[in-house]
Amino acid sequence: MTDIDEAMLIAWVDGELDEVTRRRVDRAVADDPALAARLEQHRRLRARLAGHFAPIAQEDVPASMQAMLASPTVVPIARPSRRWSWVTGGAIAASLLLGLGIGHMSGGQDGPIAVRNGAMLARGSLATALDSQLASAGEGGSIHIGLSFRRKGGGWCRSFDGAAMAGVACRTDAGWQLLQAVSGKGQASEYRQAASADPRLLATIDGLIDGAPVDAQGERAAQAAGWR
C-alpha cells in the first residue's frame, strides 16, 4: 500500500521532485511492481515524445525564416578601419545609387544588367556589390546583400535588395547570373520592409539552396575565394 499518486510519478519522471520525495517514490516503487510498471510507462512516454520531435530542432531552419532575421542591423562584425570606411562606403553607395536608381536596364553603360547568350548577368555596381559586399558588414549602401548560400549542384548564390530591384544571383563562369529580379521598394528608409522578403524570392531561394545560408565567417571565406 502506498500514498504515491500519479502526479508524483510524473513529477519523478520530469525531474521535479525534491530529494526527500524522490527517495520516498524510489522506496515505494521498489516494493510495488505495479507502481514500478506505471513509472516505467511514464518514463517511456516522455522518451518517445521527446525523441519523436527532437529531430526537428536539429534540422536546418527554412531559408524563408532565416531571411526574416537576416537584417543588416544584426551583426556587429569588424568593419573596415574608420579612415577608409567613409571613402569606400560613400563611393560604393554613390555608384550603386547611380547604377540601380537611375541607370538604364540595358542601354546605358551603367545599367545593372547585361544580357549575354540569353542569360541576365549582373554588371557594374551590382556585380561589384555581389563580388565584394558582405552582408555581415552591415554596409549601409543602397544595395543590401541578404543571404549567401551554396546551391544544389554546387556554386554560390546571393540575394540582394536595392531601391530599384531585388533578386537572387548565382555565380557562373561568365559572372553573376540573375535567376530572378523583382521591383525594389523605392528609396531605402529605415523602416521599409526589405523587398528581399518578397515571397517569390524566398520561394526561389528555398528551391535553390543546399543546406543553410553561410554565416559571417563562411561569407568572408567565400568572398576571399572569389565565389568559386
Binding site: 520531435f53 530542432a57 525564416m65 532565416q66 532575421l69 537576416a70 542591423t73 544584426v74 556587429p76
Partner: peptide
C-alpha cells in the same frame, strides 16, 4: 542589437514547439 541573432539561435526550438502543437 542582437535581437535577431538571439531569435535565430532559438528558432530550431520554436519550430519544434510549433510542430508539436
Amino acid at each position: 542589437m542582437s535581437f535577431e541573432r538571439d531569435l535565430l539561435a532559438i528558432l530550431p526550438r520554436l519550430r519544434r514547439f510549433a510542430a508539436s502543437l
